[in-house]
């Protein structure tokens, strides 16, 4: 790890000011991802701005009936927050499906959005990687790509976003509140993360100097019909092969509104309005869910080691929507799949 200047920010404006247009400045909050990447020499900031003292630790209801989550709220606090457990249980479940309790105690809400990919080539500075070092090539396309993307890939990058929490936030139509040198703005969750395209080094649409201050959830939480289903290579403490957050609004057996977002299959949490449109007004049954899955996966493309994910994703969608319909959400501690 190269040395850096360590500074503490006193408030949001100070934090933004401290970046001072320096592309090698980084905010640190939980540190669980940044410090790991710094040890691996993947991130080499020359200035680290400690934002842990900023007043961004509140979880509070919004006037419109939603919930505003401060960017520094630790993952565990968010998952266990009474309002989240009551109104957005899918978010609690998604958070508890990720990492370990120690990491969740440290990791912040904003930091979770900014997690970088687990692609082994990204992590290993001895190998080419366009995301880490633009223009060097993607080692994963012809390499070990079991964990890689099947949707939204490019010739430059097939990495996936590793977060579980973000998958649920995507499904819930969250918005991301950011502050930057030119003021505040609100970014819809779907527009926050990017597809790799020809600039895979950019994970998000944050501008230089911008800081996440909050994530806001709209009122609708799908508390009665939801699930977070995560499939991985061991039963806990592993990144997703495929994960899905699903929520249904039912009228009897008929779907009034259905939403589902997937993790582990793309450069961003993946949601497809066309697939959700398939659900609307249809009976909540396997046939409907399979049709929706087929739409979402219509352009899926596998690589040497991850083609199975297309089939797995299809099965996960059907299963998860079934769990949501039956109101039997997946438990994150009891490992039998509901």
């Amino acid at each position: 790890m190269i040395n850096f200047q360590y500074v503490q920010a006193t408030d949001v404006a100070d934090a933004v000011r401290q970046t001072d247009g320096d592309p090698r400045a980084r905010f640190v909050a939980g540190g669980t991802n940044l410090i790991d990447l710094m040890k691996m020499e993947v991130e080499q900031p020359t200035r680290v701005i400690d934002i842990t003292r900023l007043p961004l630790r509140q979880v509070e209801p919004t006037p419109s009936g939603g919930l505003r989550i401060g960017a520094l709220v630790p993952n565990t606090d968010l998952a266990y927050h009474p309002l989240v457990e009551e109104r957005y249980p899918v978010l609690s479940s998604a958070i508890m499906a990720g990492a370990s309790q120690q990491l969740r105690n440290m990791a912040s809400t904003g930091g979770n959005l900014l997690q970088r990919t687990r692609c082994a080539y990204f992590y290993d500075v001895a190998t080419p990687c366009n995301k880490r070092t633009p223009g060097t090539g993607c080692s994963a396309i012809e390499g070990l790509n079991r964990g890689h993307a099947i949707l939204g890939t490019s010739q430059a990058c097939i990495a996936v976003h590793p977060s579980d929490m973000c998958v649920a936030m995507m499904m819930l139509d969250a918005t991301v509140h950011v502050t930057g040198p030119t003021g505040d703005r609100v970014v819809p969750f779907a527009d926050f993360h990017r597809l790799p395209g020809d600039a895979p080094q950019r994970d998000t649409n944050l501008n230089p100097g911008e800081i996440i201050t909050a994530v806001e959830l709209p009122p609708k939480g799908f508390a009665s019909h939801h699930t977070y289903l995560k499939i991985r290579d061991r039963l806990s403490y592993a990144f997703a092969l495929v994960a899905i957050a699903a929520g249904l609004d039912l009228d009897g057996d008929t779907i009034k509104e259905g939403r589902f977002a997937l993790g582990g299959i793309a450069h961003k949490p993946w949601r497809d309005p066309k697939a959700e449109a398939v659900l609307r007004g249809q009976p909540a049954n396997a046939a409907t869910f399979t049709r929706a899955a087929d739409v979402l996966l219509r352009d899926a493309r596998g690589y040497k080691y991850n083609t199975f994910k297309i089939d797995l994703a299809r099965r996960c969608i059907v299963r998860a929507l079934g769990q949501a319909a039956r109101a039997t959400p997946q438990s994150q501690s009891h490992k039998k799949i509901a």
């Binding site: 687990r118 082994a120 039963l235 490992k335």
Partner: peptide, 14 residues
């Protein structure tokens, strides 16, 4: 390429 114990899986308690 999985030279760490996040990606080289050994059993966890669960």
């Amino acid at each position: 390429m999985n030279a760490n114990i996040a990606e080289y899986h050994v059993p966890v308690n669960a």
